[in-house]
Design a protein around this nucleic acid. Structure first.
Lengths: 338, 338
DNA sequence: CTGAAAGCGCTTACAG
DNA sequence: CTGAAAGCGCTTACAG
């Protein structure tokens, strides 16, 4: 049986011989409706397969209990994990969540913002695309009074809450560890410096060099290139330099993995001739040999704090409560530099 | 500046000194509005920061151009990849997509279905939870005329379109390969048999045994247990049997990885004393040693076909066009059984 | 305890 | 080319 026409409260009202409004109230378990009437109406609604119209309800009530998440990708374990956790935490607080993907393109990100605005979501959580280099559109959100929290990738701002990690410090720590093990020619396969995480990790790297009185060699710092091909190409380029570095700090573990491949190709031994350090502690870090030293991000804390900051803004919209949470990542020493 | 009140078409109409309806039409670039008026209204809307109300628009127009996706998880690379690709393909066809997560619980899955129904989405794509053993709620969707397509995990039905893979055949092929290499005591760490993929892979395993005239040993078939702990426990249990199998076909690559760990623990050599076969071709399959023989799923094809079947139902709702697409996975022989 | 009134913001024929 | 009318399905005070 195909039910062609949509069943509305009006239909139920007609069958139950009450007014439309009574149906509304019975369905929301309103205290002022007679128990018997309520039961009758609810049973009938169930029987008729009534499902409330989300749009009509939200339009009339002006409540939606919905938050949006914008991420550049979900097919990466960090992103999918955080999105899943945010989804879970937000749902536990009674919110629907709408995940949107920007595919690392600013154009899509803007479209996502607009879609979520048009949906009048109660708040937005965002992790910016690689192409994003200002907060123009996100600031508009704030101007309209839409609660907003950044996590991970962001353009830092006094106006916008965020949950970040101490990347600079963790990087300095792990690179210092490497340098303390006797490596003296450090290179960096870097992230984009327009985005906080690229910049922080780069600065942490430079901090460590500074601590060891090593002058950074510009030839040994290569920015960008995250596709499999580009990662490999950058690694090869680095390793085929006639003045070759003996330690590589990589912006993320995938890049580190490409360095492994390029090193194997060139017959360079890790960690003997080349130390390698990653970032992110992907599953692969424990699987590749030698096991990769890297930095572990507190995924669960990031998700939980992000939701907490957002709900706080939603619950007390009057106060302009911008909060910046900075979480501590874990340095994980394995076998790839010693 | 915080914009407290929402800007509506009425506001624009007042400023532009035209009627509300004219604003509507100007904004949708209606051909019957004077070019000059249109431009004036559009400019003003832009200037005032007008963003249409999604709910009002959908309620009034009865169009939404939105599809929902329900998956049990996104923090697994197969799921996150397929969801991301479906998202992309659907978006390319002009659809918004709403991904929802059931967290492997039927209760959540039902709630997701209801939410999407209340949103009157144009169609739903689903990958069922581990707890789901009938199509009761999904059939209701069909009864209401909501286009629906299953992919990967599903309860097969003549009433519901789906995109599946030839798991049984691929499994038989790869297990036969293992048996042809001299292993003779095959075990199976199996998926749940209430769901197609668990059943198909188990049947493929049995087909292969049958081909080689090997009687399945019930002690060597263990069903379920997907958490890291349970996987490891099952693997240990299997390997500590006094009559130990010499080949294990695993429902997925993660389980195979646990078998590696358990084997290492017990000093059992792979592939010498124990052959291991996985399923899914996760990134880890190439990273662990020996490299894992496994079956690769055509993720991109799955996503594309799923979207295609759904759009077909949306575009011609009158016909009851149930279609079943079955895609061919690739057997990938590496080093874990020989 | 029940219902009539007013409205949410937008769209779609229709008339002029 | 522009606007008045009717409506989408639901909710929220308010009156009785």
């Amino acid at each position: 049986v195909v039910i062609f026409s949509e069943i509305t409260q009006k239909d139920i009202a007609k069958v139950c011989k009450v007014s439309r409004e009574t149906v509304t109230k019975a369905l929301q378990d309103h205290p002022k409706i007679a128990r018997e009437t309520k039961a009758r109406i609810q049973a009938m609604a169930e029987k008729m397969g009534y499902i409330p119209n989300y749009y009509a309800r939200n339009l009339a009530s002006k409540k939606n209990k919905t938050i949006g998440i914008i991420v550049p990708k979900i097919s990466h374990s960090f992103h999918s994990s955080v999105v899943e956790l945010i989804y879970k935490y937000a749902e536990n607080h009674g919110y629907n969540v709408l995940p949107m993907i920007s595919f690392e393109e600013r154009r899509n990100e803007i479209r996502n913002i607009e879609t979520l605005m048009s949906m009048r979501v109660d708040g937005i959580i965002a992790n910016i695309s690689q192409e994003t280099s200002d907060n123009k559109y996100f600031h508009q959100l704030k101007q309209r009074g839409v609660p907003l929290v950044f996590f991970d990738r962001m353009i830092e701002s006094d106006m916008i809450s965020h949950v970040a990690t101490e990347d600079r410090k963790a990087t300095c720590e792990i690179v210092s560890y490497g340098l303390s093990k006797g490596y003296s020619k450090p290179a960096h396969l870097a992230g984009y410096s327009n985005i906080n995480i690229g910049r922080e990790r780069r600065n942490g790297f430079l901090d460590a060099l500074n601590k060891f009185n090593i002058k950074p060699n510009p030839d040994w710092i290569i920015e960008g290139g995250f596709s499999e091909e580009l990662r490999y190409e950058n690694a090869r380029r680095l390793l085929s330099l006639k003045n070759r570095p003996d330690l590589v700090f990589c912006f993320n573990d995938s890049i580190a993995h490409s360095v492994y491949n390029a090193a194997e190709e060139s017959g360079i031994n890790i960690p003997g001739e080349l130390g390698v350090i990653g970032y992110g502690n992907l599953a692969l870090a424990r699987l590749i040999r030698p096991k990769l030293s890297t930095v572990d991000l507190p995924v669960d804390d990031i998700a939980r704090e992000t939701v907490r900051l957002l709900l706080r803004q939603i619950d007390s919209p009057a106060r302009n409560n911008v909060e910046h949470v900075v979480l501590k990542p874990d340095v994980i020493i394995r076998e790839s530099c010693r």
